[in-house]
Design a protein around this nucleic acid. Structure first.
Length: 271
DNA sequence: CAGGTCTCCTGCTAGC
DNA sequence: TGCTAGCAGGAGACCT
C-alpha cells in the first residue's frame, strides 16, 4: 500500500525515464481508473503532450504536461512499469502510455487507483488536491495547527493521522509506526493529547517518513514494487505486522481502529 | 458538521 | 484436495 515514501520513490524513478518524453498514444483497458473523463477524451487530450515535470502532493503523483496535469493516485496496489511497446498487456494492466521507444504501463490488481486529467491552472485549489492538508514538512505544521484541526473531533489519534485533510501522506503502516515511536496508544482520543504529545507526533512523523524515503519505502505482503522500486523500510518497522515488540519483547496487539488493522505494543503504548 | 457504514476490487487464507 | 466465506484496505458516497 503505497504511502508518501513509496509514492515519492516511484515519482523519482518515473522522472528518470519520462522527463521531456512525448506521449504518442494511450491505450485504456479499464476506464474506471479515470475519474473525471471518458477514456476517449483522456486519450485525445494526452496524445502529443510532453511530460515537463513530475511532482508529488501527499499520495498523488502529478505529471505536468504541456497543457494539462495528470494526477495519479495508486491507492492500494497501483504501480508503473516501463515496457517495450510491442509487449501485449498482461492481467491487471489497465492503461498504457506509449512513447516513441517504450511504453509506461499502469497496473493495479484491485483497480482502486484513480487518475484525474485536469486543465493546466490552479489545481491545488481544485478537486482532488484542494482537500489535502499539510505536507509533513510544511512549516505550518505545528501543535497549534493540529489543535485547530482536532477541535470538535472525537476520533482516536490513529484515525486522524489517516485523515488526508489534516496531514497528507500518512497511511496505515506509518500511522502505526509514528504512534509507536511517540509511545501513544492508537485508541487515545486525539483531543485529549497534550501539547508535548502533539509535538512528539509531528516530529516522529517527519522522522519516520524521511527515514522511509531514504530506504525507498516499505515493501510488504502483496505490495509488489513498481519498476525498479524496492523499498527496505520493512526492516525498520517496529509494530506494523510484527509479532513482538523490538524494544520490550511484549506481544504486539492487533486491533481495529476506525475500521483499520492496527498494531501496537500494549506496554510501550499504554492508554 | 461529525462520524459510522457501505462500496469498490481481487487475491489470499482459514476452515471445513 | 478443493471449495467457499471472510478479510484486507484508501477514499469517496451516502446516511444518520
Amino acid at each position: 500500500m503505497p504511502e508518501l515514501p513509496e509514492v515519492e520513490t516511484v515519482k523519482e524513478k518515473l522522472k528518470k525515464s519520462l522527463l521531456n518524453k512525448r506521449i504518442i498514444d494511450v491505450k485504456v483497458y479499464y476506464d474506471k481508473i479515470i475519474a473525471n473523463l471518458s477514456s476517449l477524451e483522456f486519450i485525445k487530450t494526452l496524445t502529443n503532450q510532453t511530460i515537463k515535470d513530475i511532482t508529488r502532493k501527499g499520495k498523488w503523483i502529478i505529471f505536468e504536461l504541456d497543457s494539462n496535469y495528470l494526477l495519479s493516485h495508486l491507492r492500494m496496489e497501483g504501480k508503473y512499469f516501463i515496457k517495450d511497446v510491442t509487449l501485449e498487456p498482461i492481467k491487471h494492466e489497465h492503461i498504457s502510455f506509449i512513447f516513441n521507444d517504450f511504453s509506461l504501463r499502469y497496473m493495479d490488481t484491485r483497480k482502486f487507483g484513480r487518475m484525474y486529467l485536469l486543465p493546466k491552472d490552479d489545481i491545488l485549489n481544485k478537486k482532488p488536491l484542494n482537500e489535502l492538508g499539510l505536507e509533513p514538512w510544511d512549516k505550518n505544521l505545528n501543535e497549534e495547527y493540529l489543535k485547530i484541526k482536532f477541535k470538535n473531533k472525537t476520533l482516536p489519534i490513529k484515525s486522524l493521522l489517516l485523515d488526508q485533510s489534516i496531514i497528507t501522506g500518512i497511511g496505515n503502516i506509518y500511522a502505526d509506526e509514528i504512534l509507536f515511536l511517540s509511545r501513544i496508544n492508537p485508541t487515545r482520543k486525539a483531543q485529549k493529547l497534550t501539547d508535548i504529545e502533539l509535538e512528539t507526533i509531528i516530529s516522529n512523523t517527519k522522522k519516520v517518513l524521511e527515514s522511509a524515503i531514504s530506504l525507498g519505502g516499505t515493501t510488504i505482503r502483496t505490495y509488489e514494487s513498481s519498476e525498479g522500486v524496492h523499498g527496505n523500510f520493512q526492516q525498520e518497522l517496529f509494530v506494523h505486522t510484527k509479532d513482538s515488540c523490538k524494544i520490550c519483547g511484549t506481544k504486539i496487539e492487533k486491533i481495529r481502529v476506525g475500521g483499520r488493522g492496527t498494531y501496537y505494543c500494549p506496554k510501550c503504548q499504554k492508554e
